[in-house]
């Protein structure tokens, strides 16, 4: 473990450093990503006013506000893309170099993603989270979050992070087959926005669709941690959800390893 930390920590630190170099860019990206939260916020407000029911998809209007902004906080922790690094390496032809180095390519990418995650979590997300919590208690009149919920939420988010990066690594392998990964990334983002619950809580989908989602890793990425945070998943349900997340981490880890092996074999044959 210690050895691992020693090898991969520099990747994390480098990513952190790079993030800080783009200061102006960084603040703006916070703003941009908050745009969609605000659009959702206003949209949901209008939706609830137009509805004659107090709860939609199992959430009250106040809970929905929390949901919308927790999507922001959670996504900034979880969605730390690595497929763009993969495509960059493929385009530049540096993947082969990475095969020579005595490190695991995937691990180095994940370490890098972790650096980005830590930075984004520390700089905007924590502040927004705290702000939201204060707003929630004072203005929305909801109960404050419990320590257990926070702990479970963080645990669940870290698993979500792993699920996301492991999935995104598999997705990044597409880069070996097309140089134009931009279009694919766009589609990935749109799809994930939907299937993870970023755009709309999973509970809004017809129940048949929800049952299909149960067998996919996506709802584990964003929806699960937020439900835990909102106190919708407690006790055994929460335990089960965390277990399911862990299972996805294992499955995607193994799957990614297998795909990587096949792709690199091809790379060695074709020369990269």
């Amino acid at each position: 473990m210690r050895k691992y930390v020693k090898i991969y920590l520099p990747f994390t630190l480098n990513a952190l450093k790079r993030q800080m170099a783009y200061k102006g860019a960084f603040y703006l990206f916070i703003l941009v990503s908050l745009f969609s939260s605000f659009i959702s916020y206003y949209l949901w407000k209008a939706i609830y006013t137009s509805s004659d029911q107090a709860t939609l998809g199992g959430l009250t209007q106040e809970e929905m506000v929390v949901y919308v902004f927790m999507v922001y906080v959670t996504s900034s922790i979880v969605m730390s893309s690595i497929s763009n690094y993969v495509s960059e390496d493929v385009v530049k032809g540096t993947v082969a170099m990475n095969l020579i180095k005595p490190i695991d390519y995937r691990m180095s990418l994940i370490a890098m993603a972790a650096g980005n995650m830590i930075y984004r979590f520390l700089v905007p997300s924590v502040a927004i989270w705290i702000g939201l919590e204060i707003y929630k208690v004072t203005a929305l009149g909801l109960r404050p979050v419990t320590a257990v919920e926070v702990l479970l939420y963080l645990l669940s988010s870290i698993m979500s992070f792993l699920i996301y990066v492991l999935f995104d690594f598999c997705f990044g392998m597409v880069a070996f087959f097309t140089t134009y990964i931009f279009g694919m990334m766009l589609a990935e983002e749109a799809l994930l926005g939907f299937l993870t619950g970023q755009l709309i809580p999973i509970s809004f989908f017809p129940s048949a669709v929800q049952r299909v989602f149960d067998f996919l890793p996506f709802s584990s990425m964003v929806y699960t941690p937020i439900m835990i945070y909102l106190g919708k998943y407690t006790g055994r349900t929460a335990g089960f959800m965390l277990f399911r997340q862990a299972a996805w981490v294992v499955i995607l880890y193994v799957a990614g390893g297998l795909i990587w092996k096949r792709v690199t074999k091809r790379l060695v044959v074709l020369g990269g």
């Binding site: 509805s51 134009y180 931009f182 279009g183 694919m184 589609a187 749109a190 709309i200 809004f204 989908f205």
Partner: peptide, 27 residues
């Protein structure tokens, strides 16, 4: 791929509206 990416993104926006309107008569 590019065409699909942009088309797909837009379609998702429609699905979103559709799901919302399952819950409300009008906005």
């Amino acid at each position: 791929i590019g065409l699909f990416g942009f088309f797909f993104t837009q379609i998702m926006g429609i699905v979103f509206l559709y799901l919302v309107f399952q819950q409300i008569p009008n906005l």
